[in-house]
Structure formats: C-alpha cells, structure tokens
C-alpha cells in the first residue's frame, strides 16, 4: 500500500509542477527525468547484474536518431517514433549483447565501449540519414492522438508519465524472481549456475531490457530537444550516465535518478561559469568514489537511520534492527 501512496504523490507533484515552476525549471526537470530513465536503464546491468558497461550511449543514440529520422521522414506520431526507437534498440541490444556477453569484467567494459564507438562512427559517416557532424535538426514536434506537443509543458507531461511507467516497470522487474536471479548473478555467478540457473540467458535478457529503456530515454530526448548531435552518442555520454548510476547508488531504484538529478543540475549551474564541465564531472566522481562509495542514496539512508536511532532509541545499540516480515 505504501508504494501506491508514494506513486500517487509523485504523480500529483508532476501534475502540479507546471503550475508552480517556471518554464526554465520545467525544462530542467524534464531533462533530469530523461536522464533518470537513461540511468535507470543502465542500472539494470550495472547495479543489478554486475555488468559494467561503457557503451550505453549506443542505445540512447539509436533511440534518439530513430525517433528523429522517423519524425522527419515518415510520421511525427509519438507512438510511431517511440515504437521505432524501441524496435531498433531491441535489435541493437540483441546483436551487441550476443558478442559482449561472451566475455566478462574488464573485457565486457571494453567491448561495449568498442561497439558503441562503432555505432557512433556509423552515425557520423551516414551523413545522408543523420546529418553527420551537423547532427539532426528541425525535428518536428511529436504528435500524440492528433495533438501536437508544441510546448514545454506537454513534453514535460509525456516525459513525466513515461518516467513513472519506466520506474514502475523496472521496480517490478528488479523485485521479481527474475530480478532476484540477476542480483544473485552479480553476487556470485558460479553459485547461481550450481543452483541450476542458465545465467547467460539472464544476463542477455537484462542487457536487452537495459538497451530498450536506454532507447526510450533517447527518443524522449529528441522530443525534448528537437535536435540531436553526434556527441549524444559519443563515449563521453556513456561515461556520464555510468557516473550518474555510480554516484547515485548502483543497485537501488532511487539512486540513479538522484545521480541524474545531481549531474544535470551541476552541469546547468557550472556551464554558466566555465566550460570545464568534464573536469568538474571527473572531480565529483572521484570525490564520491573515495568518500561516499555507497552513493547519494546510501548516504541519505545512513543519515536517515542515524537520525532515527538518535531520536527513537538514544542509548540502545542497534543490533536487532533486522526486519522480520
């Protein structure tokens, strides 16, 4: 029941936002939610399955360019552009996953990077389709049920609703028997095999799920931005989203969203003063890795627990805090 309450609160807040916030802040929130979806999608493999990928921009880019190209050449109907983005992401994830999951650890990271750079250079070269180095501009506004989403608020509502849907879907998946197997694989794949699990199938499924929602984030980004640059599919994008997951709290649901929020906000603030954003991003990451390895989510949980222990039971050492449900 508690979960429904949280969900309705989020829904209400999102619904009310345009009446409270300025359009600048609505844009910021939209961007946070899009990157929140992107980080959540990567979290499926990095946080839950223990497969660290440095090539997730491939799916973001695939989703973004597919949505953009369909909107320009076929139809700007959101169902078409989003459907196309999902379809291409699935195909791409099925192919890339097939190769990358042959290896693990460091080699997995390098192979995902290599594949995403291949996708990048393909996009960069195919000037006819993608505009090459100029990117894809003048993408028409998305149309939903005959209604053109022509202003910030409509796009925000679409993004916010999809965010809630994606959050719910991934929340269920990670708490399902399937999701529990993924966590087991992250912890000790050899043991899971010994229990009788065909772990490769699970890793593959996780990879494809991750790719699909990465593509969804990309498509949303197109609706939001109306423009796609090849840098959106470059490896620095993969690095940024990985940092969002890690500093937010890998393997939690809220963590990656908090990570996305922090990075998007920081970038917005910082870029008005200096253009050394990448350096600052690096510094933030280093600080987190060294001082707060459990991420924003981990810190907030500790603080919350600390407050609770102090106020509720000041002197009793907290040994029997385990919940027996």
């Amino acid at each position: 029941m508690k979960i429904y309450l949280k969900f309705s609160t989020a829904l209400l807040l999102f619904a009310a936002s345009p009446f409270i916030l300025t359009s600048f802040h609505i844009n910021l929130l939209t961007e946070i939610l899009i990157f929140g979806i992107f980080a959540l999608s990567l979290n499926v493999i990095v946080g839950y399955t223990g497969l660290v990928s440095l090539g997730h921009a491939a799916f973001f880019g695939a989703g973004a360019y597919t949505a953009g190209i369909i909107a320009q050449n076929i139809s700007a109907n959101l169902l078409f552009t989003l459907g196309g983005a999902v379809l291409l992401s699935v195909i791409l994830a099925c192919i890339i996953g097939l190769f990358c999951l042959k290896v693990s650890g460091f080699y997995f990271l390098m192979l995902t990077l290599a594949f995403s750079q291949m996708v990048y250079s393909f996009v960069y070269q195919s000037t006819g389709w993608t505009g090459g180095s100029n990117g894809l501009s003048g993408i028409p506004n998305p149309i939903l049920f005959g209604w053109e989403l022509s202003n910030t608020v409509w796009v925000f509502y679409v993004v916010a609703s999809l965010f809630l849907v994606v959050y719910a879907i991934l929340g269920i998946i990670t708490e399902s028997p399937f999701g529990k197997v993924l966590v087991g694989i992250k912890e000790n794949e050899k043991r899971l095999k010994s229990m009788g699990y065909h772990t490769n199938i699970y890793k593959y499924a996780a990879f494809v799920i991750s790719g699909i929602f990465g593509g969804v984030a990309g498509a949303l980004y197109t609706y939001f931005n109306g423009f796609i640059a090849p840098s959106d599919i470059y490896w620095t994008m993969s690095g940024t989203v990985l940092i969002m997951v890690l500093i937010g709290g890998a393997g939690t649901m809220l963590g990656p969203v908090l990570g996305a929020a922090l990075i998007v906000l920081l970038e917005t603030i910082v870029s008005t003063y200096t253009n050394m954003w990448m350096m600052i991003l690096g510094a933030v990451f280093i600080i987190f890795v060294i001082f707060f390895p459990s991420g924003i989510y981990g810190i907030s949980k500790d603080i919350f627990k600390g407050i609770q222990n102090h106020t509720v039971r000041p002197k009793v050492k907290n040994i029997s805090n385990e919940k027996v449900s």
Binding site: I172, I173, E175, S176, P177, F178, G179, K180, V181, M195, G196, Y197, Y202, A205
Partner: peptide, 13 residues
C-alpha cells in the same frame, strides 16, 4: 528455480 518461477519478471516476489 525448483518451483519454476525463476524467470517470472512481471510480479514482485
């Protein structure tokens, strides 16, 4: 795995 619910992914366990 024994109960055959290992790959159910749409229902919270």
């Amino acid at each position: 795995r024994k109960h055959g619910i290992k790959s159910t992914w749409f229902k919270v366990r």
